[in-house]
């Protein structure tokens, strides 16, 4: 994933906090947030993941004017997913899953930040899975920097491709 411009916005933080069921007012109420230690609204700890919204080539979003989208419409699936998933972890199309995720907070993201993110590949390794056949793991390291070039968050994601869907039970 390469994101040139990830503007961190209060309404996006509010929606993200709602989606994880976190009603902490520091994520939406500026007046409340002023009286807290951070002194203003901050983003929840996993918010960096939402930078995918600002990745023009994010593989897990239907592309306007693109070549269709996988998932059901008239048929159980349409187009195959485009390329490889870059951000975070797993892959599209049901064969890829997110295995691990780690964040290092140099500081916490806040509204008004305009961040950029660059990703480099990390290690890859294989393992024989008990419930899904051969597993291929691949790591990616994403650095989020502010407009001064200061590191804000480092995100290390591990995706896994499975030979077959994970057996249940």
């Amino acid at each position: 994933m390469a994101v040139e411009k990830f503007p961190v916005e209060a309404s996006h933080i509010m929606m993200f906090a709602r989606s994880i069921g976190d009603g902490n007012p520091i994520y939406y109420d500026e007046e409340h947030a002023k009286g807290t230690e951070p002194g203003g609204i901050i983003a929840p700890p996993t918010f960096a993941q939402a930078s995918a919204q600002f990745d023009p080539n994010h593989g897990l979003r239907p592309k306007i004017g693109g070549d269709g989208w996988f998932g059901s419409g008239g048929a159980p699936t349409g187009a195959k997913p485009r390329g490889e998933r870059k951000s975070g972890g797993g892959g599209g199309g049901g064969g890829g899953l997110h295995a691990e995720q780690r964040f290092i907070y140099h500081r916490h993201m806040k509204p008004g930040d305009v961040l950029s993110a660059t990703t480099r590949p990390g290690k890859t390794w294989e393992k024989q899975g008990r419930r899904s056949g051969k597993l291929v793991f691949s790591e990616s390291v994403t650095e989020y920097r502010d407009s001064n070039g200061e590191l804000v968050v480092t995100a290390i994601g591990v995706g896994v491709r499975t030979e077959r869907p994970v057996d249940q039970g």
């Binding site: 993200f16 994880i20 230690e37 951070p38 700890p45 993941q49 997110h98 964040f103």
Partner: peptide, 29 residues
């Protein structure tokens, strides 16, 4: 999404340690 579980679990962490106090958070799904 694994990240939904990580996000929800993060709520428990920030409720415990306080706003803006986390320096590292990593999980396996």
């Amino acid at each position: 999404h694994g990240m939904l579980t990580m996000g929800m679990t993060g709520k428990m962490l920030t409720n415990y340690v306080g706003d803006g106090r986390l320096t590292e958070y990593g999980v396996r799904f």
